[in-house]
Amino acid sequence: MKFYLGTHQPAWLARDLGVPLLVSHQRLANRRSLPRATGPWACDAGGFTELSLHGRWRTDERSYIAALRRYTTEIGQLDWAAPMDHMVESHVLARTGATVRVHQHRTVANYLRLRELASELPIIPVLQGQSVVDFHRCADLYEKQGVALVGLPLVGVGSVCRRQHTAEVEQILRSLAARGFRLHAFGVKVLGLARSADVLASSDSAAWSRRGRYLPGCTPGHRTEANCLAFALRWRTGMLDRLARDQVGPAATVSPGMAA
């Protein structure tokens, strides 16, 4: 499993960190100059923020494609990019006024449109749902549109990062993996990863920054650790060590090397 360290600091892309990063389009879109990546990274579209705050996407597909092409050229080393998907957490649905099924259809339609506009870009499909049945219904929607999810380099699993019930997350991920999908789990909690890492191709987390808000800075210039690279890397190492100890799935072999 490849683990992407989520960060709101685009400048870290230019640092020789030896770890893959996940950076949001929202953090890159308005920059006049972009850092040149020294290692692999992935681009999150920032849908959770968009829908939570505004109830809709404020950009269109062509603008997003133009941005991704710029990132590919100027930053380089882009592993993949998320589509402009529609997550289905309850408070997001309340903000948009739509249903789970509507969000699923919008997510699939967006992926198809992005692929039509730029088939050369490594944009991955993302599955959305609340229940196991929901996620499989979303997968079926892709299949009905001619998208063969089996065999794709990566299929994202959204709307799982804030779930407290790790057994439910495990059931969702294992049931999707059983269909032959190479899965990326967006922001799954550590215990959820420990239960499911053996069926994931990759995952990510920016939980270090949330935790760092409540810790005093490690240097006089840092009021907290919420923006600290050293803290982020220490958190990542500790998280991977804990994951290796706590993994309870059938393939109980996880090490920090999984991030490479």
Rank of each mutant, 00 (worst) to 15 (best):
F181V: 00
L176A: 03
L152Q: 12
A148R: 15
D140A: 12
K144E: 07
G151W: 09
E143K: 14
R137L: 01
L114G: 10
S196V: 06
I123M: 15
Q145W: 13
P122N: 11
R162L: 08
R163C: 01
R162D: 00
V190L: 14
T107I: 06
R182N: 07
E116C: 12
G192D: 07
N110R: 15
S131E: 03
N110Q: 14
G129I: 01
L117K: 15
F135V: 03
L121I: 12
G158E: 04
L112H: 14
K189S: 10
D134S: 06
A118T: 10
L154R: 15
L112F: 10
V126G: 07
L191T: 10
E143S: 11
R106S: 07
T166G: 00
F181C: 02
T166W: 10
G158I: 04
G146M: 11
R115K: 15
L193H: 10
V108L: 09
G192Q: 12
R162W: 11
K144T: 00
R182A: 09
L193S: 06
L117V: 08
V160I: 13
A167H: 13
A139N: 08
G129E: 03
R179G: 00
H136F: 06
D140V: 04
G180V: 01
V147W: 12
Q130R: 15
A197W: 07
V147D: 08
R113W: 07
V155N: 02
D134F: 04
Y111L: 11
R174I: 00
V190P: 08
H165V: 01
L193I: 04
A194F: 02
E168G: 06
S131Q: 09
L193Q: 13
V157A: 04
A167M: 08
P122S: 13
Q171S: 08
R162I: 00
N110L: 07
P125E: 07
A109D: 12
N110Y: 09
P122I: 11
Q130H: 12
R179M: 00
L127T: 02
R182Q: 09
V133Q: 09
G158Q: 07
R195E: 05
L114Y: 07
Q164C: 03
I124H: 08
L149R: 11
E170I: 01
K189E: 02
A185W: 04
P153K: 14
Q128S: 03
V160S: 03
S159H: 08
P122R: 15
G129H: 06
G146A: 11
R115C: 08
R106V: 00
Y142I: 04
R174S: 01
G156C: 05
A109S: 14
I123N: 12
T166F: 11
V157P: 01
R182S: 08
S119Y: 13
C138H: 12
R163A: 04
A197D: 06
F181Q: 05
L183N: 01
V147S: 07
H184W: 08
H165K: 14
C138V: 05
D134R: 09
V132E: 05
R195V: 00
E120W: 13
P125T: 08
L117W: 12
Q164K: 15
A197E: 06
R162E: 03
Y111P: 08
Q171V: 00
V147K: 14
V155K: 09
